[in-house]
């Protein structure tokens, strides 16, 4: 049973220790292109740590990462981005001093690879690089639905929801094959959440491998084709939404055990812990 044989992004035995604390332990799963995978679990399960490990903000203590068959475990952050991994943050991170469009251009600049040396030796290329980035950025921004009238506004004065759009656009402008989203629905109202869900499904249909870390269960259940559940840094379930819904371990992790059998429940939990 290897549902992750075609995984585009594969984690194998990933572990992360912080001074003796096991933030993530022996984590293995894969996410496939064309699918939305949700990573869920109670607070403190290590979900954001997983995103940080995948993007390279943190280095894994053990295990390996593969992207499209190629090992990326030792690549630096910027290299992983070039390889096709992009992420958004729990709180939208706007680059200060830049407009919404300029923020997205920063993402698109990835393709130009324009460096200081170019400024010295090939200064005439600046215009072209700017124009190409701008074009890419406009496309990405239009995709996320940000009103054009806001494109030239300073990004840090935009509303929360709009900043999320800008951040998403910035990621999309990098034309990633893997998009990691850290609680994108936080702070959104139900309508906006629905829109987000539709948008993510659309991205998956376009061929991206989307990994969604979320607490919003209705969103997860409606959008994800694949769910991975974590608790205390370990994977406790992995499969299609229907299976996860019925999974005892998941239910226990999230909801506790049904009330009728309190004492039996205690025994069961103790047993489960010592198993």
């Amino acid at each position: 049973m290897n549902p992750h044989a075609n995984a585009h992004l594969k984690l194998s035995g990933i572990a992360k220790y912080f001074f003796g604390l096991r933030a993530v332990n022996d984590l293995s799963f894969g996410i496939a292109r064309g699918e939305v995978t949700a990573l869920i679990g109670p607070n403190g399960a290590g979900k954001t740590t997983v995103i940080n490990l995948i993007t390279g903000v943190l280095a894994q203590s053990r295990g390996a990462l593969h992207l499209g068959g190629r090992e990326i475990s030792n690549l630096h952050m910027a290299e992983r981005v070039r390889a096709g991994i992009s992420r958004t943050y729990q709180t939208p991170q706007m680059i200060k001093g830049l407009t919404a469009l300029e923020n997205v251009t920063v993402g698109a600049d990835l393709f130009g690879s324009f460096t200081m040396a170019d400024l010295f030796f090939r200064p005439w290329r600046v215009d072209g690089a700017n124009a190409r980035s701008r074009a890419r950025a406009r496309e990405a921004l239009a995709r996320t639905g940000l009103r054009e009238s806001l494109w030239e506004t300073q990004a840090d004065v935009l509303s929360y929801g709009d900043q999320r759009r800008v951040e998403l656009a910035r990621s999309l402008a990098q034309e990633p094959s893997v998009l990691l989203l850290d609680e994108p629905a936080a702070g959104l109202n139900p309508t906006e959440t629905e829109e987000l869900g539709a948008f993510l499904s659309g991205l998956a249909r376009d061929g991206l491998a989307v990994l969604l870390v979320e607490h919003d269960m209705p969103l997860v259940m409606s959008v994800a084709q694949h769910i991975v559940v974590m608790k205390f840094g370990e994977k406790i379930a992995d499969g299609a939404p229907a299976e996860i819904r019925e999974n005892a371990a998941v239910i226990e992790a999230y909801l506790g055990v049904p009330e009728e059998d309190e004492f039996a429940a205690t025994d069961m939990t103790l047993e489960a812990r010592h198993a």
């Binding site: 952050m77 992009s86 943050y89 251009t105 600049d109 400024l119 600046v126 910035r170």
Partner: peptide, 28 residues
Amino acid sequence: LLVHSPVGRALQAICTSETVAAGAGIRV
């Protein structure tokens, strides 16, 4: 010229947060 080029934007990204800059593919 620098300020209005990808390099200038990269500098401002780095100023905001090196992690975010690296996350955008900038070689910080």
